[in-house]
């Protein structure tokens, strides 16, 4: 039997160690990162949804607070890098501006994505967009929270679909962006 072969057993042990060292030194696998992020992110989202069901009139502010904590957890789950270079701040500024001008998170994300692709193509792959995953996470959770607010009647879909200059609507995005900044300070590499 191969399993009784001492060499095979030693190799199996080594494989475990290699995997362990890989995770510590070079980061988690994508699946592990996703599980780490959603383990806490979805729990926070669930708590916010329960709060929205209880007090829909405070739903906007509880969503802002939740998105801040999700932003704090994002770099600590290793799903995104720390906010430490100029590109990250540039992306946050661009997304905030688009969000304020368009007044809609999905529209802001789509336009940001198109510009990011365009600049990536122009720079022949040299362009990096550190906030892309943050923006995707933001759109997903914001959509979920706004959907819950619509179901409670606290938010009208006509307001959500309206495209207009509205810098107040950027508040949740600023919260997750500030959370990213704060979370980056606490990540222990």
């Amino acid at each position: 039997m191969m399993h009784n072969n001492p060499l095979y057993e030693a190799a199996e042990e080594a494989k475990k160690s290699v995997k362990f060292l890989y995770e510590v030194n070079t980061g988690y696998t994508l699946t592990a990162k996703l599980e780490r992020f959603f383990g806490v992110g979805l729990l926070l989202a669930l708590l916010n949804l329960i709060f929205i069901a209880w007090r829909p009139d405070w739903g906007v502010w509880s969503s802002v607070a939740t998105l801040f904590f999700i932003g704090v957890w994002l770099p600590n789950s290793y799903l995104i890098d720390r906010l430490e270079d100029l590109a990250g701040y540039r992306d946050l500024f661009a997304l905030t501006l688009l969000h304020g001008v368009l007044g809609n998170p999905v529209a802001a994300f789509v336009v940001y994505g198109l510009f990011a692709l365009l600049f990536w193509a122009i720079s022949r792959g040299e362009q990096s967009n550190p906030a892309a995953i943050l923006a995707l996470v933001y759109v997903g959770f914001r959509g979920m929270f706004d959907g819950a607010l619509m179901l409670t009647g606290a938010l009208d879909i006509a307001d959500w679909l309206r495209f207009q200059v509205d810098f107040m609507s950027t508040l949740p995005f600023l919260a997750i962006g500030f959370g990213w900044f704060v979370g980056s300070l606490f990540r222990n590499d």
Partner: peptide, 8 residues
């Protein structure tokens, strides 16, 4: 984490 995201 796996338990948390599935339960959440």
């Amino acid at each position: 984490y796996r338990f948390l995201w599935i339960a959440s």
